[in-house]
């Protein structure tokens, strides 16, 4: 199941700001709990189980990129 490669959101900076702002006054635990809820809500919106599995796998993956240190 392929996930979308390109960004589908208009105004990505505005989206990111809203996300961060929504947690500004929360404790760390509250933030984590909110994130968990957000994942569940969005998973329900996506609905497609295969897509959700692909998203879980991508999110769990460790970055494997080529180490690229231009300096030193």
């Amino acid at each position: 199941m392929a996930l979308k490669e390109t960004l589908t959101l208009a105004d990505p900076d505005g989206f990111y700001q809203e996300l961060i702002e929504s947690q500004r006054d929360m404790s760390e635990d509250e933030q984590q709990l909110m994130n968990a809820k957000l994942v569940l809500i969005l998973a329900n919106e996506v609905g497609d189980r295969a897509k959700i599995s692909a998203a879980i796998a991508l999110a769990a993956r460790r970055p494997m990129g080529q180490s690229f240190m231009p300096l030193v």
Binding site: I20, E28, A59
Partner: peptide, 26 residues
């Protein structure tokens, strides 16, 4: 980032940006 939660989002965007294009504009 002003909080740990915001730092996690930041780092999540950066790690995802290496793996998939959609995170790059963020």
């Amino acid at each position: 980032p002003k909080s740990k939660g915001s730092r996690f989002y930041r780092d999540a965007v950066l790690e995802l940006a290496e793996m998939t294009d959609f995170a790059k504009p963020l």
